[in-house]
Amino acid sequence: MILPAALILDAALGEPEWLWSRLPHPAVLMGRAVGWCDVTLNRGGHRRVKGVVALALLVAFALLAAGLVAAIPLGPLPEIVAAAILLAQRSLCDHVRAVAVGLRRGLPEGRRAVAMIVSRDTAAMDAAAVARSAIESGSENLSDGVIAPAFWFLVAGLPGMLVYKMVNTADSMIGYRTPRHEAFGWAAARTDDLLNLVPARLTAVLIALTAGRLRDLPAIRADAALHRSPNAGWPEAAMARALDVALAGPRSYDGTMRDFPFVHPSGRRDPGAAEIGACVRRLWRAWAALLVLALAAAVA
């Protein structure tokens, strides 16, 4: 019953500011470990090989951390707390909801709120682009921050969850096709793609199931193929169908407009705060379905 308890604990408490203002969050520690590998190993030749070595060191660090938690003589409580910390349902929904609140106050507030959760340029966004960005971020991070960690806990316990979070953190920091990171971050990016293969599709199924749209799975599969990511398109396509809005599409990064295709292009192109609120409700419904699965797995 460790995972169900962790899901409920995270949903109830989220990430208390009083705690993480005093202690470094595990995600921060993982980021520091990735940064150390980047600074120390990402130089000279054979960078792809060095990236593989870096990933192996990071995985070993994650497994060591899992072993230390397991060694605490307090029964299942340390694992429950650790797993809850590594989940992000409450904080995800809070951040997405904040964009809706900002938009209702005015476009500048909406832009400021969405800039907290996306990496694209936000200064010139209209209200529809702000809403699309929030919904896309919520959908993708439901997979990365909730479903995938829970899935890997079910597969391999806390070690599996920690390894996933470490790989995902590495991908978010060094898994880019830039001159500095294309070779060094190759192993992190490809491993993250592999570890998210099943969770991304499971996320799409949970969104569709709780929205009563399982009949749309063939269309969701087709829409997901339009996305630049092999995995992120699945939860985004499912959420687009659940809300009947068009997601993705053109957006600007570092001052350069990139012409990405729309996912569910026949959906509405003018979402706003109401659609963001509906997205948050869908996120919680998918979480509830995940909780039922976790309870069933625990009983089995």
Rank of each mutant, 00 (worst) to 15 (best):
S137N: 06
A128L: 03
L29Y: 05
A134R: 02
R132K: 13
A70E: 15
A33T: 11
A70M: 14
A88Y: 03
A113E: 06
R32A: 13
H46Y: 10
G106R: 06
L64Q: 14
R120I: 08
N141F: 02
G45D: 15
M125D: 13
L41D: 01
L74T: 08
V52L: 10
H95V: 08
R105F: 00
L29S: 08
N141L: 04
R48V: 12
A100G: 00
M116A: 15
E79R: 07
G67C: 03
L103K: 02
H95P: 05
A131N: 00
G67D: 08
D94Y: 05
P108H: 11
M125L: 14
L29R: 14
A62Q: 07
R111H: 12
R97P: 00
E109P: 05
A129F: 01
A131Y: 01
V118S: 04
A134C: 06
A84M: 06
E140C: 01
R97V: 02
H46R: 15
A84E: 06
E136W: 00
I85T: 15
G31Y: 04
S137G: 06
L77N: 08
M125V: 00
A123I: 09
L77G: 12
V49W: 13
A65P: 01
V96I: 07
M125K: 09
S133T: 07
I72S: 06
A84R: 06
V99N: 01
R32G: 12
F61V: 04
A100Q: 00
S91D: 15
V81G: 08
L103P: 01
P78L: 09
A88D: 08
L87F: 07
G138Q: 05
R90C: 04
G67L: 00
P73D: 01
R111S: 08
E109G: 02
L58E: 00
N42E: 10
A124W: 06
G102Q: 05
L92V: 11
Q89R: 13
L57E: 03
T122L: 10
G102H: 08
Q89L: 13
M125W: 09
G35W: 12
R104V: 00
L86C: 14
R47D: 03
G67R: 03
L55N: 00
H95R: 14
A60M: 07
L74Q: 09
A66M: 04
G45R: 14
A113G: 00
W36F: 10
V28F: 11
H46N: 15
T40S: 14
V118A: 05
F61K: 10
